[in-house]
Design a protein around this nucleic acid. Structure first.
Length: 107
DNA sequence: TATTTGACGATTT
DNA sequence: CAAATCGCCAAAT
């Protein structure tokens, strides 16, 4: 089956994010056992986006900002997905911010 | 095969 | 208080 690599854990953690909630890279990294591997989480979603399986749009950085440069289809699509889940996104400087104090995932 | 970079985050100076 | 550096794992060159 699948490998037990760190990446696999990241994918599982991202899929564990409940609807209407968002998680940060550091949060997922911590759940995987390495609180300093936040960039590994980002890299994991970058090489294996698994569209339809891994809700990358629910993963944001510590500032609650989305990744427009690597957004699938477009940042606007990402915002639409979050809005469809009830997550309010704030547009600033062409980027999208989420209020982690309200929508931050609490495992 | 070895080296460098990368959707980030925390710690140290 | 602010800036700079280290740490993490895997993929790409």
């Amino acid at each position: 089956m699948e490998k037990d690599t760190f990446f696999a854990r990241v994918y599982a953690a991202v899929q564990s994010i409940p609807r209407g909630r968002v998680a940060t890279y550091g949060q997922i990294a911590r759940l995987c056992g390495s609180p300093r591997a936040a960039r590994v989480v980002g890299g994991a979603l970058h090489v294996n986006p698994a569209p339809g399986v891994i809700p990358c749009h629910r993963v944001v950085n510590r500032e609650g900002r989305l990744a427009p440069a690597f957004a699938f289809g477009g940042a606007q699509v990402q915002r639409d997905l979050l809005a469809a889940e009830g997550v309010e996104t704030e547009e600033r400087g062409g980027l999208y911010f989420v209020d982690l104090a309200r929508y931050g995932w609490q495992p």
